[in-house]
Simulated scan of single mutants.
Amino acid sequence: MSVSKDKRTSGNPVFAGWYADPESRIFAGKYWIYPTWSAPYAEQKHFDAFYSEDLVNWSKADRILQMSDITWAHQALWAPSPVERDGRYYYYFAANDIQSDAELGGIGVAVADRPEGPYRDALGQPLIDRFVHGAQPIDPHAFIDDDGNAYLYYGGWGHCNVVRLGEDMVSLTPFADGEVYKEVTPELFVEGPCMFKRDGRYYFMWSEGGWGGPDYSVAYAIADSPLGPFQREAKILAQDPNVATGAGHHGVLNIPGTDEWYIVYHRRPLTETDANHRVVCIDRMTFAAEGRIQPVCLTFEGAPARPLRND
């Protein structure tokens, strides 16, 4: 299903509809955005995805995973983070918004043979279903390092953990010291972790503030290891009173073969007051000479055309 065409830039929002918590990837020669369907919790029963060959013209893949296909999910689905390994796609997501270890829910994982799915629940139960180091099991973000080690960062309630994924991508494996869960919480962390690597350094990002308010924002740290320590550098994404509020919970895209980077995030239009009225946007992310991320400028133009080379 085509949702945009014949534009010079993507525009912001990138596509129509209330969506949030976007994860961004490059799979099978296309750009992909995997968001939460931004609705009241009781209505968040499915995931859609969007794909493009040039960042400008986007098409929609409907209902790539639905609550009816997950036996243990009953309240809400949100914050997906897929990753590819050995030709299969592993899709991590949050469900049920558990408030204690006595409740069923947490972080699940689904699997598919194509980036658009359909995805199927891989375990029949959550992958992470309890609070460890105070972190609510929500907002997963998958990251595969250059050495092949796969990590899952996650957390809410002001705490962030990282776990190491097994070779099957649907289990956890201990770190060298025997620990399974390592807390990596930086200053002012709230939720929405995100990791990327540039010039051999690890950039860890997260959301601050309340997701339903205007002050939602993104900050970052830089480390020499995927396990940190992560010392907060600065806030780089925040509301602009002339453009939008509540800018946060994001993913990152790097144009292959370049040092051109984009942040894919959600924000709330100035005309909206409903907490769930969020849209997905994309803007340029640049770096200072010493590697620090520059503050992101919120725009209505979005990204220019950047076709992917498939040779």
Rank of each mutant, 00 (worst) to 15 (best):
G192I: 10
H141D: 12
I263K: 00
P186D: 09
Y41L: 15
R232C: 06
A39P: 08
W261N: 06
T71Q: 11
V170Y: 04
G210M: 13
T299M: 08
E233M: 08
H159N: 14
I263R: 00
A110L: 02
K30L: 15
P229L: 06
R267P: 03
R88C: 04
E167H: 13
A61K: 10
G106F: 08
E260Q: 08
K45C: 01
G251M: 05
I144Q: 12
N12D: 08
D129M: 10
V170S: 01
E191I: 07
K5W: 15
H277C: 12
V132S: 11
Y265R: 01
T71N: 09
G11T: 08
E187L: 14
R278G: 04
W58S: 01
Y91M: 07
V279L: 12
S10F: 10
Y92M: 03
E84Y: 07
P269L: 08
P137V: 01
G105D: 00
V296D: 01
R85M: 08
K60T: 09
S225C: 08
Y51Q: 03
P307T: 07
A135W: 06
Y41P: 12
P118C: 04
W78G: 00
A221H: 10
E260W: 02
R267E: 13
A275Y: 14
L270G: 05
P295F: 07
L77Q: 03
E260D: 10
G302A: 11
G200P: 05
D199F: 06
F204T: 04
D97G: 07
H46F: 14
S24D: 10
D177Y: 09
P22R: 08
G178D: 02
S100N: 06
F287E: 02
G124S: 05
L308G: 12
I236A: 03
G117Q: 00
I255G: 04
I222Q: 00
M205H: 07
P80F: 11
D129P: 06
Y181W: 09
W32A: 01
H277V: 04
A94G: 06
F27N: 05
Y265K: 02
V163K: 00
S59Y: 14
V111D: 03
E290N: 10
D97K: 12
F50G: 01
G134A: 08
K182A: 05
R164A: 05
I98E: 02
S2Q: 15
A150M: 04
T286V: 00
K7L: 15
N161L: 07
P241R: 14
Y181P: 02
G158H: 13
R8Y: 13
F230L: 09
I222S: 03
G213A: 12
A39G: 09
R8N: 13
H277W: 13
D283W: 07
R292K: 10
F15N: 07
F93A: 03
M285Y: 02
D145M: 07
E53W: 13
P256V: 11
Y89H: 07
G11H: 05
D69G: 04
S52Q: 07
S52A: 09
F287I: 02
E53H: 15
Y34E: 05
D224I: 11
P241F: 15
F93R: 00
W18D: 12
W206P: 06
G251K: 05
